[in-house]
């Protein structure tokens, strides 16, 4: 019996503690966690690369984008290096993202080394403490080639000792560029480079609509690689079906444009309009007739 009372009391105390913990948790609602900044490196068609930064914070227990955050981006040296290597100062948008190209003024620094470190710095604000985030990448490039048998070959190389060296074991995705994203060229989702840094995939999406001349855009890309970042290359090939614009829009239909109504509708609508407005005009004619009769009557006295 005594044990029961003790266990019941313990239960009540635990319940109250849980309640207090819950209350405490509730009280924390609306509080913001520290600002978290991530940097992504992109290289498109092996040209001068660009960076995107993403700012987010844990608000109400889940990560949410932080808009309006001012972020300074540096190449290799941060602000303590007296401002040398400043890429840009960006402000994040509604979705917490901002993009910056590496300016031409940093070309020398960029070319001087085969690997670089990007630094993102935010100052202390009333909501967040200052942050410092770094991303190191090694310079790499991706190339794409095609063969008549509709095979696609991509090659990943790293810039090492002043030359491009093939890289083995990198995951490469190959696809076709479409409006909503990239469609894979075959059944494989990704391919891994061999000792020559190459991957080969068979183009199986025959009958894919292309542009007016049948061109489609082939894509080879490395995504979120810890060493090389994001690399992407595109190549146009006439492997698609020629696209012929559908000119239904200018045909006579209910969804047609102005003056392209179906004939039956034109006939019906105009018949009704002419019928009714003809009657109205006839009535106006009758009023004129009444008026004339009146004037005649007046003239005759």
């Amino acid at each position: 019996m005594k044990r029961n009372i003790i266990s019941n009391c313990a239960g009540v105390v635990l319940f109250l503690l849980a309640g207090l913990a819950g209350f405490n948790a509730t009280a924390k609602e609306g509080e913001k966690g520290p600002l978290k900044v991530t940097i992504s490196y992109f290289s498109l068609d092996n040209k001068l690369p660009y960076l995107t930064v993403n700012a987010k914070s844990k608000i109400d227990g889940k990560f949410q984008p932080v808009g309006g955050a001012t972020i300074k981006l540096y190449l290799d040296k941060d602000s303590t290096g007296k401002g040398l290597g400043l890429i840009a100062t960006v402000v994040t948008g509604e979705k917490g993202k901002a993009t910056a190209d590496i300016p031409a003024s940093l070309e020398k620094i960029w070319k001087a080394s085969s690997s670089h470190t990007f630094i993102a710095v935010t100052d202390k604000t009333k909501d967040y403490d200052e942050t410092n985030t770094e991303l190191s990448i090694a310079k790499a490039r991706i190339t794409i080639d095609t063969a008549d048998d509709k095979n696609v070959v991509a090659m990943v190389s790293e810039f090492k000792d002043n030359q491009w060296v093939p890289v083995k074991g990198i995951d490469v995705k190959m696809g076709i560029k479409r409006l909503g994203g990239d469609l894979q060229i075959g059944e494989e989702q990704s391919y891994t480079t061999d000792s020559l840094g190459k991957v080969k995939g068979e183009f199986k999406k025959l009958g894919m609509p292309g542009d007016k001349t049948g061109n489609i855009i082939l894509v080879a890309k490395v995504e979120d690689n810890d060493t090389y970042g994001n690399l992407r290359i595109e190549k146009s090939e006439p492997w698609g079906v020629k696209f012929t614009a559908n000119d239904d829009f200018f045909q006579r239909a209910l969804w047609g444009s102005q003056f392209h109504s179906p004939f039956w509708l034109v006939f019906m609508a105009y018949s009704i309009v002419i019928g009714v407005w003809g009657t109205i005009l006839y009535l106006v004619f009758l009023i004129i007739k009444i008026k004339k009769l009146g004037k005649e009557e007046e003239r005759l006295g």
């Binding site: 009714v276 009657t279 109205i280 006839y282 009535l283 009758l286 009023i287 007739k289 009444i290 008026k291 009769l293 009146g294 004037k295 009557e297 007046e298």
Partner: peptide, 28 residues
């Protein structure tokens, strides 16, 4: 309405016009 003299013919035309209007207004 100064032209309305109330002649028989005017009444007849007006009655005809009203009848036409009464028929036309229903579908409209």
């Amino acid at each position: 309405g100064s032209f309305w003299k109330g002649t028989h013919l005017q009444f007849r035309i007006s009655k005809k016009a009203i009848n036409i209007l009464c028929i036309a207004i229903v579908p409209v």
